[in-house]
Design a binder for these strands. Structure first.
Lengths: 212, 212
DNA sequence: GGTGTTATCTAAACACCGTCCAGATCGGAC
DNA sequence: GTCCGATCTGGACGGTGTTTAGATAACACC
């Protein structure tokens, strides 16, 4: 036995445990929320001893970092899916905002881990403003395409940050109970989101011909 | 001894322990951050046994709720302080936004506790949209005053929520390391904040004469 | 003023947590 | 086939939130 036995209960020494741990963590997150995400619970879920994860991650933080990383990639994909919707800037940015917030609503626990890590580090994931297909760059490139070359990079960056902050704020607060009456009055959650997003981002600021 | 001895080491049975615990928690928060805020540490800081807090709070959550409550009141006061600055809406809202974010920067740990509690409950503090001098109502009333009576309440509420989300997002992300180059390029943190806030909130939406 | 009631506090215990250590186990290189 | 190094386990340590039983002291009442 050994090398050949593919899908045994324990293919390798234990198998690809690093990935198994991240998957287990994601499973716990979806099933029981962030408060249940202890390192021991992850090990239990993966069927190993509590000390096993320490051969793949320096500590609990490093595991959470890995979990957050897959979350950021999934968020990036979700936003790429809508990058062709929307004729003008306003509606495209709204579409991106809806995609962002909907992701956070579909994976609330994961989203919380993602931002808890960022807050602890006081930084977004490394390289987020550089690598081409990240959510952040997608927003910035959208702004840049629309604004044209005359607009200063500083303004592009400020607009991107502003949009990002707004989306993040809405993602964290959209489910708050106080908004339920308004949500229902508008006929559902997505209408509510679009309503809020329509009040956010004065994208006209970026145009060169200020009609004001 | 007893009733008369005012400021002894332990005036009452223990004194006003409930308040002492909240104060101790706030002290730990400022000194060591949110990760150090254990119930036992609070009890230690207040000089009582680990079980003592349970005679004043159902559990740790309830203590944190009390801590968050004082935080929300302090935030409301900080925003009331600037409610007369700024000639037009845009600049007044910017001023309020700066006050909001600066509060979160002055008390980062407290701000985090405040929103962690809200996220757990999926709700802002109870009564926040009702009691007159809350930060939330201050923003809404500002919008209402400017918009005039013709604007629908729904739009006022949406604008308020949008502004709040934007401010919260900026509060949580303003310190992120990725923004440091831009912050320095703009000549300091407050300039950076104003720059981002200027791209947020298309307050013109609320005016009745859409010059568009 | 003594007495009983009730709120308050302590000490000890429980289960769980993150983390480290010594030793067992096993894959792969020589 | 033997050794090495990576991987995993069992057990331990200190810390956590919470509960229980029992001590203590303020207060109400006679």
């Amino acid at each position: 036995m050994s090398t050949a036995a593919v899908a045994d209960t324990r293919p390798y020494h234990h198998g690809d445990l690093r990935r198994a741990l991240v998957d287990a963590a994601a499973r716990i997150l979806e099933r029981e929320g962030p408060s249940a995400l202890s390192l021991r619970a992850v090990a239990r879920e993966a069927g190993v001893s509590p000390a096993a994860p320490y051969h793949h991650f320096k500590d609990k933080n490093e595991l959470l970092e890995a979990v957050a990383h897959v979350g950021w990639e999934a968020l990036g994909e979700a936003m790429l899916d809508v990058r062709d919707k929307g004729a003008d800037v306003q509606s495209l940015m709204t579409e991106l905002g809806v995609a962002y917030v909907c992701f956070s609503q579909r994976h609330p626990a994961l989203y919380r881990v993602m931002y808890d890590r960022s807050r602890d580090k006081d930084a977004l994931p490394e390289g987020m403003q550089d690598k081409e297909d990240s959510a952040y760059c997608l927003v910035r490139e959208t702004f840049k395409k629309v604004a044209g070359p005359e607009v200063a990079d500083v303004d592009i960056e400020l607009a991107t940050i502003a949009a990002w902050c707004a989306a993040h704020g809405l993602a964290e607060m959209s489910g708050f109970a106080q908004f339920n009456p308004l949500r229902e009055a508008l006929g559902g959650d997505e209408a509510f989101l679009r309503g809020v997003l329509s009040h956010l981002g004065s994208f006209g600021n970026l145009r060169q011909d200020p009609a004001e």
